[in-house]
């Protein structure tokens, strides 16, 4: 049964939906921040899934943003995340889910992402995602890949250096640099994973 508090929060979520969708500003809606969009997204392996229900709900997630033609930070980032994937081992795809969301959905359709994943020998449990331009921007804002300076915010390279790491079951979210040492990123993942005692 819903408590009054749940009801209030629920209504607050509805009430605030209009505010934050277009807001680049730091003043983001709390209910929205805790309720990520359930947008339909395409995976690099050809599936259509709901972002929140299918990819995030109850899971530990490591999320970055990239685009396949990015020549600066993205290839290095992808390589670093491959090392993280190796460190995570069997936990990837079972306890921890890695997602890379394209910043340029116009360039990166499912096939392009699939080729990119294959080229980098990305293993099971790490999924590349694309969607419509608006949906991607919406996801980006909600996940906190955002800069209050509109010029910087419009520059895709602003958003490729950070990992969003969290445990949805506990609404616990933090960040790490994409280029941090992989064992340091692992410690951050371990921090939000309640089953891990020794974080690093």
């Amino acid at each position: 049964m819903k408590t009054r508090r749940d009801l209030l929060v629920g209504i607050a979520g509805v009430a605030l939906a209009g505010y934050a969708l277009s807001a680049r500003r730091s003043l983001r809606a709390p209910a929205l921040a805790q309720g990520l969009p359930n947008t339909l997204v395409q995976t690099h392996d050809g599936r259509s899934v709901r972002f929140y229900d299918d990819l995030i709900r109850g899971k530990i997630a490591v999320i970055n943003m990239m685009y396949t033609r990015c020549e600066n930070t993205c290839p290095l980032g992808t390589r670093n995340l491959l090392r993280l994937q190796q460190l995570l081992g069997e936990r990837v795809g079972r306890d921890v889910f890695m997602y890379s969301i394209t910043l340029k959905p116009d360039e990166d359709d499912q096939h392009v992402l699939m080729k990119y994943a294959e080229r980098h020998r990305v293993q099971h449990g790490w999924t590349f995602l694309t969607a419509g331009v608006e949906a991607i921007r919406d996801l980006r804002y909600h996940l906190g890949f955002v800069d209050p300076d509109p010029l910087l915010d419009d520059d895709s390279n602003t958003h490729t250096a950070v990992l969003r790491i969290g445990n949805d079951a506990y609404r616990r979210w933090t960040m790490a640099p994409v280029m941090a040492e992989p064992d340091q990123i692992l410690a951050t993942v371990n921090h939000v994973d309640r089953t891990i005692i020794y974080t690093g």
Binding site: S26, A33, G144, V162, R172, M175
Partner: peptide
């Protein structure tokens, strides 16, 4: 505080919550 008067801090926002 949110509209219900409950303290919140947006962990998703890299700028923090002012």
């Amino acid at each position: 505080f949110d509209l219900s008067g409950t303290h919140y801090f947006d962990a998703m926002d890299p700028e923090g919550t002012f």
